[in-house]
Simulated scan of single mutants.
Amino acid sequence: MNHHRTTIDRGIRRRTIAAAGMLALLAAGTTALPAAAQPAEPGSPERPLRASQSALLAEVRAATARFHDVEVALAEGYQSTHECASGPDGAMGIHFMNSDLVAPGAPVDPANPPILMYGPSPSGGLEFWGVEYFEPEVGQPVPMLGDRPFDGPMPGHDPHMPVHYDLHVWTGKHNPAGIYAPFNPSLAC
């Protein structure tokens, strides 16, 4: 996936959307709140997660703990995009996708994310940063991970990627911007 060009656009768009609830207003043509009026990102120190969402994230962490070893991800059918996505807001990392787990319109399986995010480790290898849930847009309602709606729909990041919804979840590395922020400002490619 070529995220570079659109990751900058997504970072800018991210700052102008007040919260996930504003997605419905944006779809209706309502103007987003200015960045200064935005509430904090859920999962950030300023806005902690609800207990039910915290329990779901603990489930995701436990189910994906094996992927701290990138060889396990490869053995389970994840394939690297080879490009480390980054932008002015930080990094997303190298995406490893398992296309067998992409199921548009199906219930989201927290234990089986279609995309894993890795980044360079201090030793020169790859370290697990988090997961990304991804669904092509096929007219379904906005997908949800527990009570958290996915971002989107958004255009594909390259000519081969469809209009889609996605949700980044920083389960391997702390993200000061929030657990669901697309970019992690404390990481770099």
Rank of each mutant, 00 (worst) to 15 (best):
Glu132Gly: 07
Pro182Gln: 03
Trp170Pro: 04
Pro182Ser: 06
Pro159Leu: 07
Ala18Pro: 00
Arg66Thr: 02
Met117Lys: 08
Ser80Trp: 06
Pro153Glu: 02
Met154Ile: 14
Asp69Gln: 09
Pro113Arg: 12
Asn98Asp: 13
Pro182Glu: 05
Gln38Phe: 02
Ala181Gln: 03
Met97Phe: 09
Asp109Asn: 14
Gly124Leu: 07
Tyr133Gly: 08
Lys173Met: 08
Arg14Leu: 04
Gln79Lys: 14
Gly29Phe: 03
Asp151Ala: 09
Asp100Arg: 15
Ala106Lys: 06
Arg47Cys: 02
Ser123Gln: 13
Leu23Met: 14
Pro34Gly: 05
Ala55Arg: 02
Ala58Phe: 01
Pro141Leu: 13
Asn98Tyr: 10
Ile94Leu: 04
Met92Asn: 04
Ala19Tyr: 08
Glu46Cys: 01
Met154Val: 15
Asn184Ser: 02
Pro162Trp: 00
Arg50Glu: 09
Gly77Trp: 11
Pro185Ile: 06
Gly125Ser: 12
Leu57Cys: 02
Gly43Leu: 07
Ala36Thr: 14
Asn175Thr: 06
Ile12Lys: 14
Pro176His: 03
Met144Ser: 01
His4Lys: 13
Ala27Pro: 00
Asp69Trp: 09
Pro185Tyr: 04
Thr7Lys: 00
His95Asp: 14
Leu25Asp: 15
Pro136Gly: 11
Ile179Ser: 00
Gly156Ala: 06
Val60Lys: 01
Arg5Ile: 15
Ala103Val: 08
Pro159His: 05
Ala85Cys: 10
His164Thr: 04
Tyr165Pro: 00
Pro42Ala: 12
Thr171Met: 07
Leu145Phe: 11
Glu135Tyr: 07
Met144Asn: 03
Pro149Trp: 13
Ser54Glu: 13
Met1Asp: 05
Ala62Asn: 05
Ala91Cys: 10
Met117Asp: 01
Pro185Met: 03
Asp100Gln: 14
His68Gln: 09
Leu74Thr: 12
Pro149Cys: 12
Asn184Pro: 03
Ala20Ser: 12
Ala55Pro: 02
Leu25Thr: 11
Ala27Asp: 14
Ala106Ile: 02
Ala103Thr: 12
Ser80Val: 11
Gly119Thr: 13
Thr81Asn: 13
Ala58Gly: 04
Ala188Lys: 15
Arg13Ile: 04
Pro149Ile: 15
Gly77Arg: 13
